[in-house]
Amino acid sequence: MLSRAEKITGWTILALGTIITLYPLAALATTALEPSNYASSGISFSHPFSFSSFSYAWTVGDFSTYLANTAIVTVSVVLISTVIAVPAAFGITVLKPRGARLILYVAILGFMLPTEALVVPWYYQLTSYGFLNTYWAMILPQAAQSVAFGTFWLTTAFAALPRTLGEAAALDGASDWQLLTRVQVPNIAPAIKTMAALVFLWTWNSFLLPLVVESNPSRYVVTIGLSTFSGAHFAEFGALAAASIMTALPVIVVYLFAQRSFIAGMFAGSVVE
């Protein structure tokens, strides 16, 4: 059993870690609840309780627009990449046409590439396609990287399914499409959910691409909107904290609901099999 010393050490470490982890988040939460005209000098813990900082950021700071833009971009990227990656992974794993393996390698390359390596050519490409300063400029490149990830990730999921599934479906005279949609997709639903959750997180958090390809504030995503807002309103701690909460909360909520698939997905990809 645990000795007294072990218990004390354990709880001390956990308590300390919790304080350090939560202090910045708690600081945001409490500061966001100060009145918007409250002249605090920073993080404020004692102040009248109010939601006016939120309404200030929502209307004056235009976070209603930024959040809507982020929602448009993020939902588009998640939908496009899922709809494209599922059949692609199925094709590679089950139908195996000539060259399928090469495509898998390109997919692996594609999702490992840092945005920094691609953002410069993307900018000139999107300019020449006439996509600069449109939602497409933020959606398409991220959809491509998400398809790359999804194709790789779902390929391992399809490969893990038992062969008998496909054989049984073939005996029943099912077409490839029926095999995919009726038999295999329901069986890899957890992997698809994990992919969607991770693509959601990355796209919501994305910064460099939207910074470069979108210069019209009415189409800013929330990360860029927050960065710009923080430059112009750096002394309005309440409004800035409220804006930060609105920026971060959707991802945190998704994380809390899909916690297991988040963590499992992140690690499964990195632990060498």
Partner: peptide, 12 residues
């Protein structure tokens, strides 16, 4: 709790 920083938007 300890995983929260991983899912907090970096600008925030």
């Amino acid at each position: 709790i300890f995983f929260l920083p991983q899912v907090t938007v970096t600008v925030v």
